[in-house]
Amino acid sequence: MTPLLWRLLAGRSFAAFATALIPTTLTLAVVGTGSAADLGIVLACELLPMLVLLPVAGVAADRFPARRVVLAADLVRAAAQAAIGAVLLTGGVRVPELAALAAVTGAAVAFGTPSARTLVAAVTAEHELLRVNARLGVAGGLAQIAGPAAAGTLTLAVGAGWSSLLTAALFTLSALTLGGLPVRTAPPAARAPFGAELRAGWSEMRRHPWFMANVAAHAVWHLAAGLLLTLGPLIAVQSLGGEGSWVIVAQTGTVAMLVGVWAAGRLPVRRPLHAVGIGAAAQALALTAFALRLPLPATAAAYGCAMFGLGVLSPLWETEMQRRIPREALGRVSSFDLLISFAARPAGLALAAPLAGVTGTTAPLLVAAVLTAGANLGVLLLPDVRAVAERRTPAALQ
């Protein structure tokens, strides 16, 4: 890769690691109050602004240079995390202040995420997109492993406030790295009113049946993933040998996901959206294994296959969006994809316990397995999913 792409990878890695620190830090800080409601309020205050503002953020990603939006989002997140650190170090856990700062963080995440996708597409040549997305995926996966462990260790050793200050420093490093990327700027164009651009983004999304079908199918597997993340540990503890069995399953899945992300940039995939659909449908294996209480080795293998599929899916999906969606609409279109993804998994988490209380754990998981496989394999029947995306000459960089 070129020095420019290594700089992009470094900046996104700083941001990914910082993002992975936040949930554990907040959880350990707030759980000391002894109130589950307080923790729920703080986490909800981060999620809700993210969901509400994503469509607005998509317009911003297409209206303004992606580098500047990412820079602003990282600096806002750095300031919010520094403020959280100051609150925790000076005054203890004050839930209203933490909730307000978590909301600021969620809003910044909303604006930064679609613009980061646009920035990757802007600075990466067409033939390098998949390799770059795969490396970004590996960095993000490693961050998801190391972040909670680092946050937990730091919080228990010196306090949650210092963990938040480290998070602020990492977001600052990301801003300094990505905000200064030497990218060319396109000549300014006349912009339509905000509402018109938002509607145009919706129209552009509807113009791509492959995208609409995949987003709907991805919503199903995100919902199913929420069910599995809630019911899976319960089944493992009760039927597969205790808490250690879930650790084995989870670690198997983590390793398999990283292998899948790494392999995605190296596998000879001629029709990437086929691999995306099959990768998402593989989650049905894990859902079925837990539903049927298969022995621990079989369940771990099934979960590993599902997570390998997820690992392959992620960089291929990112790359296909960047190749197939016009550059000038990528932020708005991808924001709808992110909105569905961010909303569906919490819905699955919320529905898991009530459904299991009424029907038991087997029925929801089996139904989710059928729906996940059916929705994602059904997408493969669409003609424009079977088509190979045409390579195009990169447009002027933002």
Rank of each mutant, 00 (worst) to 15 (best):
L130M: 06
H127M: 04
Q81T: 14
A107G: 02
A149K: 10
A116T: 13
A102L: 04
A150E: 07
G106H: 03
Q81F: 15
A79T: 12
A79L: 15
A150S: 15
L88I: 08
A134Y: 05
V109G: 08
T90K: 05
L129M: 10
A103P: 01
T118Y: 08
A139I: 07
L88M: 07
A121G: 14
A102V: 10
G140V: 14
L129T: 03
A122D: 11
T118G: 14
T118A: 15
G112H: 00
T113W: 11
L88Y: 03
V93E: 08
G159C: 05
A134C: 09
E97V: 15
A86V: 15
A99Y: 02
G106W: 02
F111M: 09
T113C: 07
A121N: 11
L136T: 13
A83I: 02
V158H: 03
P148E: 12
A79Y: 08
A125F: 06
A150I: 09
L130H: 02
T113H: 10
V109C: 09
R94Y: 12
A157P: 00
I84A: 12
V104T: 11
A110H: 04
G85H: 09
G92R: 03
A103D: 00
A83R: 01
V87E: 13
T124G: 00
L154K: 01
V109Y: 11
A125N: 06
T113K: 09
R117I: 14
G159K: 07
P148G: 12
H127E: 10
A100N: 01
G147T: 02
L136W: 07
A116S: 15
G141V: 06
R131F: 00
T105F: 12
A121T: 12
H127L: 08
L101C: 08
I145A: 11
A82M: 10
G141H: 14
R131W: 01
A86M: 13
G112W: 00
L136D: 09
G141W: 06
V123R: 07
L156S: 15
T124W: 02
G141I: 08
G147L: 06
L119I: 05
A103R: 00
L129N: 04
A103G: 10
V93T: 14
A150V: 13
G147F: 04
A121W: 09
A143Q: 09
L119G: 01
P114F: 02
A78Q: 09
